[in-house]
Amino acid sequence: MSLQKANYFELFSLPVSFQLENAQLEAAYKKLQSEFHPDKAVNADDRTRLQALQQTSMVNDAYVTLKSPLKRAAYLLKIAGIDAEEHNQLHLDEGFLLQQMEMRETLESLIDDEDLEGLDAMKDSINKEKTSILAHFETQFTAGEFVGAKSTYNQLQFVYKLLDEIDKAEEKLLDY
């Protein structure tokens, strides 16, 4: 069986959509994983083994891409012919950047105060924001508003980064 599919969604027999059933993704991943496991090609010739390795790596890439909402959003934009990574300052809303800057400043002072409760509260509120931006992306993408969806994706990138920074701060404080 060949893995030549139009895209990762097709590879996993999933509809090309932002909405994704995790259970379906996991099941499809496990199935493909066992089908193409390199161990099965252990006694085969070099070419077949290399192929098995490449297929496994492709299945893994596809899984990682579809599982993460952020990566999935970028991938959907790519399928729609939009380069999500290309950016121009004009696409970024100044009010949004200002808000990001303020949140980074808040985070900095929470770290200085070693305020773990504050960090938790901040994480909760950013996670709520993330959920609402993800929903917004889905609405825009489904409606075919790709330019707007791209801006929303760019905002998500900042939000994910911020959550990352909060996690790092918490880990650092808990190590004391």
Binding site: L97, Q100, Q157, Y160
Partner: peptide, 13 residues
């Protein structure tokens, strides 16, 4: 001047 780089999440004022 408020700018940002989405790919790395950097913000600069």
């Amino acid at each position: 001047g408020m700018v940002g780089a989405p790919a790395c999440g950097d913000v600069m004022r």
